[in-house]
Write a protein that binds this DNA or RNA. Structure first.
Length: 141
DNA sequence: GCCAACGTTGGC
DNA sequence: GCCAACGTTGGC
């Protein structure tokens, strides 16, 4: 898959943990009710790489997944125009990358993750993505 | 648990 | 269209 885009999705472990995702292998990323986040979901292409960020409890980037199916209507939305994508687990990062490290890293402190702390689906630049993989000591499969 | 930041709603 | 009130997110 040439030139995949890179993204980051955020979730609280109480709502949907990385461990649950590992068990499920594939999940639909539902419940997004923010227009900016929804538009980011809709910009995802099949095969795009997605970082999984755990919020609230020891905030850190934890895992890597990819878009298995691009945006389609959110079956959990009773009203409004909302979307989901299907995400497929790729691997757990060798070392999680904590938010504290990202905030103190000169090349990562400008990430949307830091600047827009409440956005739950966001793009990641190729340079940011590469740096996070490096910090996590993780190699792409 | 507290609180800041931010998005949404609704009165005017 | 403005803005106050309110609800939610998420770091700490």
């Amino acid at each position: 898959m040439p030139n995949p885009n890179h993204w980051l999705v955020k979730q609280e472990p109480e709502k949907y943990s990385w461990e649950t995702f590992l068990h499920d292998k594939t999940t639909l990323w539902d419940g997004v009710r923010n227009f900016q986040a929804r538009n980011n979901l809709r910009a995802m292409k099949k095969g795009d790489l997605v970082l999984f960020y755990r919020s609230v409890v020891e905030p850190a980037i934890q895992g890597l997944c990819r878009v298995a199916r691009p945006a389609y209507p959110d079956p959990t939305a009773s009203e409004g125009d909302w979307s989901v994508v299907d995400l497929q687990v790729l691997q757990t990062l060798t070392q999680p990358v904590p938010l504290s490290l990202i905030k103190n890293h000169p090349r990562l402190a400008t990430m949307a993750l830091v600047r827009q702390s409440r956005l739950s689906v966001m793009p990641v630049s190729p340079a940011e993505f590469a740096e996070i993989l490096k910090l996590s000591q993780t190699k792409l499969p």
